[in-house]
Structure formats: structure tokens, C-alpha cells
Amino acid sequence: MNQHPSSAEQTEREERREFAALQWFAVVVTLIVVISALVIGRQIGEDVQNDAPPLHPARMATNAADAAAPAAGAATTASASAGSSGAAPQPGAQAASSPGPVKKTAFAPPAADQIPEGPMGDVIRQGEQIFLHTGANAKGFVGNTLNCVNCHLDAGRLANSAPLWGAYLSYPAYRSKTKSVSTFSERLRGCFMYSMNGKAPPDGHEVLVALETYSYWMAQGTTVGEKLPGSGYAKLPKPEKAADYARGKAVYEAQCALCHGANGEGQRSGDVQVFPPLWGAQSYNWGAGMADLHNAAGFVKANMPLSRGNTLSDQQAWDVAQFIDSQERPQDPRFTGDVASTRKQFHDTENSLYGTMVNGKLLGQGIR
């Protein structure tokens, strides 16, 4: 005789099947929620990372150089520790502390004691010594008592005094002075012709190779072609009043004559030129960049009096530049034989006093 389960037993089995089905459903739902949370969380993390402000290109290049060659010694700004750690800045903190574009800061070149050993280091040190003691180490190419370091302070490191690390990045470049594209080596040759009132070394000469190698080493951690803050001379706005000889003379006598002499002759200690002459036979000639008022004013404003840069007003800087560049100095080596035609060809700007009358005297006749 067949036995049939009671209705109670049948109900109990159906309830167990329903409960088991609910358990499996709960497990599936839980897995879906967990997987979704992981996917969404990862996406949010990627979005935050992508939205983080990028490091400055120069800083990124420095980080790469630091990672690849710590001995290169490229010192950078106060943000270097955060940049080199690899930690991305937090967007919220960035927005709160420095809204808008990230402000560039002056590049800090490697220190002298970081010059490497070996043949490369030997040439770098040779370039450094030529830069510091140009007449003694570049004999035959220097025609005055100046050294490169007189216009490019702190061995070519100091911002706003046309530092080597800024100059090296800027070439090849078109120059209105030569009306052609100049290489860095050609730019160095011009320094010997004009600032040093001498003779340009021939292409490939060891003096040029050493100076270019020193400049290359100084520029480690920078980005080629980038205009870094402080890479040239300070650019001053035009003065409120026209630059004035008499006001400039008063500034010179009060602030400059102690080091550079009453007649711009500078100071010497034996064979060493301690403070450079600013005009006269031993100074830069009329073709030098410092004979242009805007360069001289920018240099003075940022760096003079020595160790007390930015203490003179813009007006004082323009006035004293006017006074200094109103003094006679060696002839421009491009001299055509006539001051007026030489001015028209090479000096026809408001920043050059060559070929103008100052205090009843025609400037540009050179030191005889």
C-alpha cells in the first residue's frame, strides 16, 4: 500500500527549499555589491589621481635626473622634497594654498663641491676657473681686467645676473644683435669680443669647450628651451621720469664709488681685480650688453650695491645706469670708421647712448 506524505511534511519541505533559495540569492547579491564597490572605488581613485595638479616640467625633469643620477646634484626649490617623494599633492590642499597657476621659482644649480671626478669633471673645473679668473686662464682672448664673474655673479649661479644655467638653455636662438641664429658657443665668443674687449676664441677652442661644459653641468635638472625665472637680467619697467645723469651721479657717489672708484676705475689688490671698472680703458666696450641701459639698470636693481640687491628704487637703478653708460669706454669692434653710421647700424635704440651727445660730448669715440 502506497503511503503519501502528510500535508505538514510537504509544507515543511517547501519552506526549506524556499529558505535555501533565499540564502543563495543573498550570497549572489552580496557578491554583486562587493564587486561593484571595488570597481567604483578604483575608478574614484583614478579620477582623483588624474585631477591632481601636475608637477612643473622643470621639477619633473629634476626628479628624473635625481632618480637616474643622484651624483648630478641638481638642487631645486623648497618643493623638491615633496616632488621627489613621489606623493601627489592633494587637490583640496592645492586649491586652498595656491589658487590659480603654480608660480615658478628660481632654479638652484648644483654646488661647486658636486663637480664629479674624472675627465668630465676636469673640464668642468677648467671652465669654472676660466669663468672666475678669465684673464689668467684665457690669455690672448681678454683685452681688459674684467672676469666673467663680474657680470654673472656667484660663479655664474646667481639668478637675475644672467646665470649660466639660464643662458645654456636659451641657445641656439635668433639674435637681433647678429641678425642670425647663434649657437651657445657663438654667444660665448661674443662675450670675449665685447664684454672682455678682446678677441673671440676660434670655434672648438679648449676655452670655449670648457666654458660650455661648465654651463652644461650648471644647467642639470632644467628643461631645454624653458625660460626659467631669473635666467637673464631683471626686466624693469620704464622709469616714471626719464633717466637723469645728475640724479644718477648722486646715486653713484653715495652707493657705488666706495667699491668701483670715483672715476669708475674699480679696485685692485696686486694683480687681482677685486671690484670691476665700470668705464674707461679696462672696462667693457661699446658693443657689450651692459652698455645698453635696460641691461645695466636691471643688473643694478637686482644685485647692487653688492649683497644689498633690490634696495635701490627702479628710478635710482635707471638713473645710475644712465650715469655709468654716459662715460666713455673702448670702441665697438664693429666700428665702421664713423660714429654716426655705427650708431645707425648697431646702436639705433633708446637704450644705447652710443653716438649721442651727453654734457656737450659725443659718446662713442672710444678710449684713445
Rank of each mutant, 00 (worst) to 15 (best):
S313N: 05
V251G: 08
L353Y: 11
R334Q: 13
P237K: 14
L208P: 08
S98I: 02
Q3W: 01
L38W: 10
R13L: 09
R175Y: 05
A74F: 09
M120A: 14
G73M: 05
P5G: 00
T311M: 06
R268P: 00
D332H: 07
A162L: 14
R329D: 09
S36P: 00
L312H: 03
Q273P: 00
P237I: 12
P91E: 01
Q282V: 01
L164Q: 11
N63V: 13
A95S: 04
R268I: 07
K199Y: 02
S85L: 04
L208F: 05
G232R: 13
S283C: 05
G140T: 11
V142Q: 06
Y171F: 15
Y354M: 09
P109R: 07
Q49H: 10
V274Q: 10
Q94A: 15
A65E: 11
P305C: 05
G360D: 12
Y252F: 15
E186K: 08
E14Y: 00
Q126C: 02
L146N: 15
Y214W: 13
N2H: 03
F275V: 01
K344G: 06
A64T: 13
D348A: 12
W24D: 06
A254H: 01
P330E: 02
Y252N: 05
A162W: 04
K301Q: 03
V207W: 05
R187V: 00
V28D: 02
E14R: 11
M290D: 02
V39R: 14
T77A: 11
N303T: 04
S269G: 03
G298M: 09
D244F: 10
Q129S: 13
Y233R: 08
A200W: 04
V33E: 05
C151D: 04
N359E: 12
P54M: 04
G266W: 01
Q327G: 03
Q267G: 01
H133K: 15
Y168C: 00
A71W: 10
S98W: 06
D348T: 02
G364H: 10
P229D: 09
K103T: 13
F141E: 06
E212L: 06
Q94K: 12
V207G: 07
P333G: 07
T223M: 12
D314W: 05
E14P: 00
R59N: 08
K177G: 04
P239D: 03
G221R: 08
A162N: 15
V39H: 04
A111N: 11
A288I: 03
F184I: 04
V224D: 12
G280M: 07
A243Y: 11
T183M: 01
S182M: 11
E240K: 15
E328Q: 08
K177T: 13
L228R: 09
M357S: 09
F184A: 03
V34L: 14
F192D: 03
R157A: 15
A250G: 02
V300C: 07
G121Y: 09
